[in-house]
Design a protein around this nucleic acid. Structure first.
Lengths: 157, 157
DNA sequence: TGTTATTGAATGACATGTCATCAATATAGC
DNA sequence: GCTATATTGATGACATGTCATTCAATAACA
């Protein structure tokens, strides 16, 4: 098998296995990996419209209407009409959502600990540099870059 | 953001973006990335039961009943009862499936060319080694290893 | 043999991920 | 101001991905 083909499947395999680990870790918390990402993004990057949230998500392109639906139904998120634009909806965490976010951060710390235990800092940095090169300029890559920057809450603008 | 966390999102981003590229390339062929993987595995590793197919797939765990359903409906695959075990179903490509496999290989060559154009051989080898370390021992990692070995058709046993 | 446990595949259920479409609202350009 | 265009979010459609359950068939074994 060509190295490029192997890369393709190893990236897929790593994503699948990582997601399964996260799925297991998040089960007691009661949210899915995608839902966890939405909650973390909203916690770090303040109230956002659907489109703006979508631009920060790696897990999905476009506007994550239905992903948000489930979180609103679980009363972890609130939808509020935007003030100057009646098309837009502003999403923010509820108190329950903020509590959930604490548990999510703990789970993520566990996962990151596992990654750091499996791979050396040099290996991690090397993979990061290469994968970043591959996704840079594409939607998911842009989202990672924006998220990598320091969290910016809307109320800090 | 911690490097380990960045790694997590970069792997997700690379999988998503790669999948979108493959989705676009495969659209004219008329199969999805997962369907293409099934066809390629069956072409390379001969007739297989559902479980055995599942063990070679990176895209999915368990037995890919429904994934196969679609391919049988498209007459790209054939289901045949196994001879000594009436529970098992043996899957093999039809003539149409074998024709489709040629187109799929062409598309994959394009994608691999794009990967090789984006990343150097050293970068690819390095990422492969690290990701392999991460997924080794897990189902998706085992599938990649089995697939990486030379294709073994059932009729060559 | 007869009983129990295990396996293989199919299926129901539910959340994702992608695409296309639609209604309401804003914006641009005249 | 008015019309054409663009944007926002919701929704239908369809294939994935995961889990649990079910049913038939086989294997294990007392």
């Amino acid at each position: 098998m060509k190295p490029a083909e192997q890369l393709r499947f190893l990236v897929l395999a790593a994503q699948r296995e990582g997601n399964r680990i996260l799925l297991d870790l998040l089960r007691p918390v009661g949210v899915s990996p995608s839902q966890a990402e939405v909650i973390r993004v909203l916690a770090d990057h303040g109230p956002l419209s659907l489109v703006d949230l979508g631009l920060l998500l790696v897990c999905e392109t476009g506007s994550p209407s239905r992903l948000v639906d489930g979180l609103v139904a679980a009363t972890l998120l609130e939808r509020m009409p935007a003030v100057g634009d009646r098309r837009r909806v502003i999403l923010s965490l509820t108190d329950a959502g903020r509590e959930k976010e604490v548990s999510i951060r703990e789970v993520e710390a566990t996962l990151h600990g596992f990654i750091e235990q499996s791979l050396s800092p040099v290996e991690i940095a090397s993979v990061n540099a290469t994968l970043h090169k591959f996704v840079s300029g594409r939607p998911a890559g842009i989202a990672v870059v924006k998220r990598s920057a320091a969290p910016v809450r809307a109320d800090m603008h």
